[in-house]
Simulated scan of single mutants.
Amino acid sequence: MNHYHFSLNISYQAYIAHYSGAASNVLVTTDQGLRLQLPASRFRPFLTQMGVKGRFRLITDQNNKFIRLEAL
């Protein structure tokens, strides 16, 4: 399994305005400088009135297929 750590700070209004479509993606930069593109829908469980903010860990399999996204 692969683990990627990153921080994210998207306001509620920005998330709704830009990422509400089914095909929208969020581009993040990991702590190691790797750029990853994830479906915005993966962040919906973490959406609050403040938006999506905090530290996250993305876990993928050996083929970089999504396993889970965790808030740290």
Rank of each mutant, 00 (worst) to 15 (best):
H18V: 07
G21W: 13
M50L: 06
L8C: 01
L47K: 06
F6A: 00
L8V: 00
Q37W: 14
L34F: 12
Q49G: 12
N9I: 06
Q32C: 02
L34R: 10
H5F: 07
N2Y: 15
M50R: 09
Q49L: 05
D31K: 00
K53V: 11
Y15Q: 06
G33S: 04
Q13D: 15
L47P: 10
Q32S: 10
R35G: 02
Y19S: 09
L36C: 08
K53T: 09
V26C: 03
M1I: 14
Q13C: 05
N25F: 14
A14C: 09
Y15M: 11
L27Q: 09
V26A: 03
N25Q: 15
R35T: 14
L8G: 00
L8W: 05
L47V: 07
I10N: 03
A17H: 10
Q37K: 14
A23V: 14
R42M: 12
L36D: 01
L27T: 12
A23Q: 15
F43M: 03
S24N: 12
H18K: 14
G51M: 10
M1D: 08
T30R: 02
G51K: 02
N9Q: 03
H3R: 07
Q37V: 12
I10Q: 05
Y12A: 07
Q37A: 12
Y12T: 03
Y4I: 00
T48F: 02
V26G: 01
I16L: 12
I16Q: 13
L36S: 05
S20A: 12
S41L: 11
H5D: 06
R35F: 02
Y4M: 02
M50Y: 12
G21A: 14
N25A: 11
A23Y: 15
Q49A: 06
S7P: 04
G33F: 08
Q32K: 05
L34G: 05
H18S: 13
F43H: 01
I16A: 09
G21C: 11
V52E: 08
R42D: 09
S24W: 13
A17C: 08
L47E: 10
D31N: 04
I16Y: 13
V28W: 10
L47G: 07
Y12W: 09
Q37M: 15
L34C: 07
L38V: 07
T29M: 08
N25H: 15
L38C: 08
V28C: 05
Q49D: 09
F46L: 01
A17T: 10
H18M: 11
K53D: 06
G51L: 09
S11P: 06
L38N: 03
A17W: 11
Y19E: 09
G21E: 06
A40K: 10
T30F: 02
Y4L: 01
M50D: 11
N2T: 08
S7Q: 03
K53W: 04
S11K: 03
P39M: 09
F46G: 01
